[in-house]
Simulated scan of single mutants.
Amino acid sequence: MTKAKKPEFRPDEFVVYPAHGVGKIVSIEEQEIAGLKLELFVISFEKDKMTLRVPTNKAIDIGMRQLSSPEVVSKALDTLKGKARVKRAMWSRRAQEYEQKINSGDLMAIAEVVRDLHRADDQREQSYSERQLYEAALERLTREVAAVSGDDEAGAQRKVGDVLTSRAA
Rank of each mutant, 00 (worst) to 15 (best):
Lys37Thr: 08
Leu67Ile: 05
Tyr17Trp: 10
Ala156Lys: 06
Glu139Asn: 14
Glu30Val: 11
Thr142Ser: 15
Lys159Val: 06
Asp151Gly: 00
Ala111Asp: 07
Arg143Cys: 06
Ala19Ser: 12
Ser129Lys: 09
Arg88Gly: 12
Arg131Glu: 12
Asp152Pro: 01
Asp151Tyr: 08
Pro70Asn: 00
Val86Gln: 10
Gly21Pro: 01
Ser129Asp: 08
His20Val: 01
Ser68Asp: 13
Met50Lys: 15
Gln96Ser: 12
Met50Ser: 09
Ile110Ser: 14
Arg119Leu: 10
Trp91Phe: 15
Asp78Met: 00
Leu67Ser: 05
Lys101Ile: 00
Glu135Ala: 03
Ile43His: 07
Asp121Lys: 13
Pro18Ser: 05
Glu125Leu: 11
Ala84Phe: 02
Ala137Leu: 05
Pro55Leu: 13
Ala89Leu: 15
Lys5Thr: 12
Ala84Val: 01
Leu164Asp: 10
Val73Ala: 11
Arg94Glu: 06
Gly155Gln: 12
Glu153Met: 04
Lys37Ser: 07
Gly105Thr: 01
Ile28Cys: 08
Asp116Asn: 14
Gly82Cys: 08
Leu77Phe: 03
His20Met: 07
Ser69Ala: 11
Gly21His: 05
Ser27His: 11
Asp12Ile: 03
Arg93His: 03
Ala154Gly: 05
Ala168His: 04
Asp122Tyr: 15
Glu71Phe: 08
Glu46Asp: 12
Ala146Gly: 04
Ile110Val: 15
Thr2Gln: 09
Asp151Phe: 14
Leu38Gln: 09
Leu141Ile: 01
Arg94Gly: 04
Asp12Thr: 13
Gly155Tyr: 01
Phe14Met: 14
Phe41Pro: 05
Glu29Tyr: 05
Arg53Tyr: 10
Glu46His: 02
Ala136Asn: 15
Gln132Leu: 13
Ala156Asn: 06
Lys159Trp: 01
Ile33Ser: 02
Gln157Arg: 15
Gly21Asp: 06
Ala156Leu: 04
Asp152Gly: 05
Thr51Phe: 09
Thr56Lys: 05
Gln66Ser: 09
Val86Ala: 14
Leu67Gly: 03
Thr2Asp: 08
Arg93Tyr: 06
Gln123Lys: 12
Leu80Asp: 08
Asp121Thr: 11
Arg140Asp: 11
Ile28Pro: 07
Glu144Gly: 02
Leu107Glu: 07
Leu107Arg: 03
Gly35Tyr: 01
Val73Arg: 10
Lys49Pro: 00
Arg88Glu: 14
Val22Arg: 09
Leu40Asn: 02
Leu52Ser: 05
Ala84Met: 06
Asp121Phe: 15
Met1Ile: 07
Lys47Thr: 06
Leu38Ser: 03
Gln123Tyr: 14
Lys81Phe: 00
Arg119Asp: 08
Glu139Leu: 13
Gln126Pro: 06
Met90Leu: 12
Lys159His: 04
Ile25Thr: 05
Ile102Ser: 10
Tyr98Val: 06
Asp106Arg: 06
Asp116Cys: 00
Gly23Asp: 06
Lys49Gly: 03
Ala89Met: 15
Ile60Asn: 03
Ala156Ser: 11
Asp61Trp: 01
Gly63His: 05
Glu139Asp: 15
Glu144His: 05
Glu130Arg: 09
Lys49Ala: 11
His118Val: 01
Thr2Trp: 08
Arg119Cys: 09
Leu117Asn: 01
Ile60Ala: 13
Ala169Leu: 14
Glu13Tyr: 09
Tyr98Met: 12
Asp61Lys: 12
Val145Pro: 04
Leu141Val: 00
Val22Ile: 13
Gln123Cys: 03
Asp12Phe: 11
Ala34Val: 12
Leu36Asp: 02
Gly161Leu: 08
Val148Glu: 14
Ile43Thr: 13
Ala154Glu: 13
Leu36Ala: 11
Lys75Arg: 15
